[in-house]
Amino acid sequence: MSKRGSDFLYHWISDHLQDAPISDPVLMVIDMAVDAKRAAQTQGIPGQEIDEEIGAMFQVLMQELREEGHSGT
């Protein structure tokens, strides 16, 4: 992953992660991944620059949600 892609993804997630209760964390993570990739492409960052990192970052989000009791199960 490029530094540009990593920086973009980090800031995008920080700006778009909701504070409201999460009814379906899996769907939220999927939607955020799709939206982040589209936003990156809109800013001229090819998807492959964030593909590698996007999975890792969203795995961390899912782990944090599980620890907070938002597992959806």
Rank of each mutant, 00 (worst) to 15 (best):
M1E: 05
S2D: 15
S2V: 12
S2R: 13
K3R: 13
K3W: 12
R4T: 15
R4N: 12
R4P: 04
S6R: 11
S6A: 11
D7K: 05
D7M: 03
D7H: 09
F8Y: 03
F8P: 06
F8T: 02
L9S: 09
L9P: 07
H11A: 11
I13M: 13
H16N: 15
L17A: 08
D19Q: 10
A20M: 07
P21A: 12
P21K: 12
S23A: 08
D24Q: 08
D24Y: 06
P25Q: 08
P25R: 08
M28W: 00
V29F: 02
V29Q: 02
I30H: 10
D31Y: 02
D31F: 00
D31W: 03
D31S: 06
M32P: 00
V34G: 00
V34W: 06
D35M: 11
D35E: 15
K37R: 15
R38G: 04
A39M: 10
A40W: 01
A40V: 07
A40N: 04
A40I: 03
T42F: 08
T42A: 12
Q43I: 03
Q43F: 04
G44T: 09
G44K: 12
G44F: 11
G44L: 09
I45R: 11
I45W: 04
P46I: 15
G47C: 11
G47W: 11
Q48Y: 15
E49M: 13
I50M: 05
D51R: 12
D51C: 10
E52W: 04
E53L: 14
E53Y: 07
E53N: 12
E53A: 11
I54P: 01
I54E: 04
G55F: 05
A56W: 06
M57P: 01
F58T: 15
Q59H: 12
Q59D: 15
V60N: 08
Q63Y: 06
L65Q: 04
L65H: 02
E67R: 15
E67C: 08
E67H: 14
E67Q: 15
G69I: 11
G69T: 08
H70G: 00
S71M: 07
S71W: 02
S71T: 06
S71F: 06
G72C: 05
T73Q: 11
